[in-house]
Nucleic acid binder design. Structure first.
Lengths: 232, 232
DNA sequence: CGTTAATTTGAGACCATTCAATTTCGGTGG
DNA sequence: CCACCGAAATTGAATGGTCTCAAATTAACG
């Protein structure tokens, strides 16, 4: 998290110590476990330490829309600081460990320290930018484009956070989850992934994603990393 | 804007005066005029005083996705405070007057005044929540649902901001713009609106929207106002 | 009252869905 | 180490919602 923030906000050692000194409580969640539920009052903010998580909303016919994926080092719910009721669900994607702190403690620290205040606000603003890009992805791209774009985003974020390990990426997301994130069905997601594989753009199997032709994938997904605001 | 904020953050008269005392510059934009362009460096934050505006992104094939609509009293680009480059475009929907202030002035005021700081962050967090709901709208609802949901949201926000005037709403959004916001084509938007009219749910013509059966419309659009966080 | 933008209509094509059934994979216990 | 199991991935065929491409009609505006 510090590494990510350091790209834009100059945190001092004091800032880092103050943040680390908060009364964090750690916890491990099993796959698919709910970290937060829509409609519940908010109390804490949560950093994902290890594993993957995602946010989602359920619609009246029972189907699910995934709104974002999260990787280690990212906050899952900073909006809880000011919003009293959760407006969406948060679930662990695989076995995930987190650290949670009461929102009032975080708010106090934000009052005391400008840099942390800025870093946290910036975090929520970048989240927001990613949501906007997802709106575009769902609204104006076909199946190939949507999936290609999602893969580009995840690869880019994994790379930027240093979680990637050379050849390819750890990719624990099922095809059904990709479908729920891209507004498609699992069946069509499957066929679309096959078509990307057949074209030699990606290789995806056993929870491992290798991007064989990055330029091609960004072209298919119309991907431009600007919205991720890596350098503010 | 003060009215909107008052629902959640207790602004004092001093807060309001300090905000009003900033070096605002007013300006009027014609229909479709660009207030901001993707890729440009950011410098100011803008309040929409009168009229409508929307944010959009263009994709590689030339089509446009509208990301949000804005009505009088709303900030259009608070993210500019911390993001150096705009990641989307902002356009006036009809003749719109705005007030802009340099982002550094706003940041300074936020440093000085907790309430304003909270109100502004909250504003961006609610924006974010609306983007999330749009992701759900585009990903998991059919044409009728998407359009019904959009109408519910706009009606609810117009009502909440006191812009509504009894019978129906001023609705200067063209069918093509509704299409660009819902990820549909103008043709299909037209047919879907007709079907909603035929069912006696809405009446929409000459820039005037009347919701004849609110319960029915919210049911079709699977609309739940929670995500608007009217009461925090 | 003329001109342009916006809305409306029709018909055919296509992308994605639905519904089932089958195969493969990952993990578990014998 | 293999047999087994449920989850995940894959396949097929038919259906359908939405798109595309024009063209016609209506509304808005100076």
């Amino acid at each position: 998290m510090f590494r990510r923030w350091a790209r834009s906000v100059p945190l001092t050692d004091q800032d880092k110590q103050a943040l680390a000194a908060l009364p964090w409580s750690r916890r491990v969640y099993a796959r698919d476990a709910y970290l937060a539920r829509e409609g519940e009052p908010t109390s804490v903010c949560t950093v994902l330490l290890d594993g993957f998580a995602f946010r989602q909303k359920l619609v009246s016919d029972g189907s699910r829309q995934i709104i974002s994926f999260h990787i280690g080092g990212e906050f899952l719910d900073l909006q809880n600081c000011l919003l009293e009721v959760a407006d969406h669900n948060v679930q662990a994607l695989n076995r995930a460990s987190i650290a949670a702190v009461h929102k009032s403690a975080l708010l106090d620290l934000m009052t005391a320290r400008v840099n942390i205040r800025r870093a946290i606000w910036l975090d929520t603003l970048i989240d927001s930018s990613i949501f906007r890009e997802w709106v575009v992805n769902l609204g104006r791209r076909d199946a190939r484009g949507r999936i290609a774009h999602l893969l580009c985003e995840l690869a880019d974020r994994l790379q930027a956070s240093g979680i990637a390990d050379g050849e390819g990426y750890d990719f624990p997301i099922t095809q059904e989850q990709v479908a729920d994130a891209t507004g498609l069905t699992a069946v069509h997601t499957n066929r679309t992934l096959q078509s990307l594989r057949k074209d030699g753009v990606i290789s995806l199997s056993s929870n491992r994603l290798v991007i064989l032709d990055w330029d091609r994938l960004t072209e298919i997904g119309d991907f431009n990393e600007r919205y991720l605001h890596h350098s503010v």
